[in-house]
């Protein structure tokens, strides 16, 4: 018989500690007062571009839409000094189209949201089959959702077993574990779920805030809770886990604030796209707008930038 839910949570909190919401909010407010100017701003903006998982996750996605997303990923703007984005992120059915558009020899990776995204409410074998199909079609990275129902009822073993099953189904593909923070509700739960996931992840796998399909997505607050969990886990075990906030990051200013949080919490080794990503789409064009503004001294009209996929 499994222990009652409150006992499971109590035991886990005793191991990993709890989080004070007001304290976290005060801490992240300090990131928003940092003033990033000139060269450091350009560096930060380009770094953010290189970390974008350019995403389209809509029922109306077509091969054509995905192809144009891939072109945008390969050359975000005319300026050759602007890096390519880290990855494109699509539904499993679109992976083969993305692979065709990007080719085999490309720096842009293909991420796919498998495991009955966004709810995860499908039998495990269906979810695993989806993961395997996406990898077989050419996905380099798999974004899975955790079983929130199992987590909230204290069945941590089930949550972890499912992550392990998906991890094994990924083979060489990188795994990103979506906690879906808005359905976990408290910072304590976000920290707890982060640890449950990290304990079964491989170095370089990700934990990710959200699907982008619920009301509340990545915020500086839940990003900070997860960064601190990654830091504590790394200092304890030596296993570096990567981080991906997703959804709700639409402006360059927000992206820089998230990066400041990374710089001041995890340090330089997390300031690259193997350790930190942004799940976003409209963010990319705002980053480009700001980079052009830094280069030319003036904001350019919106039609100078090729349209990005507007998803989350």
């Amino acid at each position: 018989m499994s222990p009652p839910a409150h006992a499971s949570f109590r035991r886990l909190f005793n191991e990993i500690g709890t989080v004070d919401q007001i304290g976290i909010e005060e801490r992240v407010a300090k990131f928003t007062t940092r003033s990033i100017k000139k060269g450091s701003k350009v560096f930060g903006l380009k770094l953010a571009v290189s970390m974008v998982d350019l995403t389209t996750l809509e029922g109306k996605d077509t091969p054509g839409k995905v192809e144009s997303l891939c072109q945008k990923a390969l050359s975000p703007h005319d300026d050759p000094s602007i890096p390519t984005v880290a990855a494109v992120c699509v539904y499993p059915a679109m992976v083969k189209h993305a692979r065709r558009a990007l080719g085999e020899d490309t720096a842009v990776r293909i991420a796919s949201v498998a495991t009955a995204f966004p709810s995860g409410q499908a039998p495990l074998r269906t979810r695993l089959a989806e993961v395997k199909a996406a990898v077989a079609d050419g996905a380099d990275e798999i974004d899975m959702v955790i079983n929130r129902g199992a987590f909230l009822s204290g069945e941590f073993q089930l949550v972890q077993d499912e992550i392990v099953a998906v991890r094994d189904a990924c083979g060489a593909a990188t795994l990103k574990v979506i906690l879906e923070v808005s359905e976990l509700e408290t910072f304590d739960h976000i920290r707890a779920a982060s640890f449950l996931a990290m304990r079964v992840l491989r170095p370089g796998d990700f934990i990710k805030t959200s699907t982008g399909k619920t009301t509340l997505n990545a915020t500086l607050g839940n990003n900070q809770v997860m960064l601190e969990a990654i830091r504590d886990f790394y200092l304890d075990t030596g296993t570096p886990v990567a981080m991906k906030p997703a959804g709700g990051i639409r402006t360059a200013k927000q992206a820089l604030q998230f990066l400041i949080a990374v710089k001041e919490t995890l340090g330089d080794e997390w300031l690259n796209n193997t350790r930190y990503r942004f799940g976003a789409s409209s963010l990319l064009n705002d980053l480009l707008r700001q980079l052009e503004k830094e280069r030319t001294g003036a904001y350019q009209a919106p039609y100078y930038f090729s349209e990005a996929a507007e998803s989350y």
């Binding site: 060269g39 930060g44 770094l47 200092l235 075990t237 990066l259 330089d268 080794e269």
Partner: peptide
């Protein structure tokens, strides 16, 4: 843990990769 395996202790690097102007 890393310690038990005799690897160097993990540490965080707060360097000058992204220095603020």
């Amino acid at each position: 843990t890393a310690r038990a395996q005799g690897r160097p202790l993990p540490e965080l690097i707060f360097g000058d990769l992204w220095e603020f102007d």
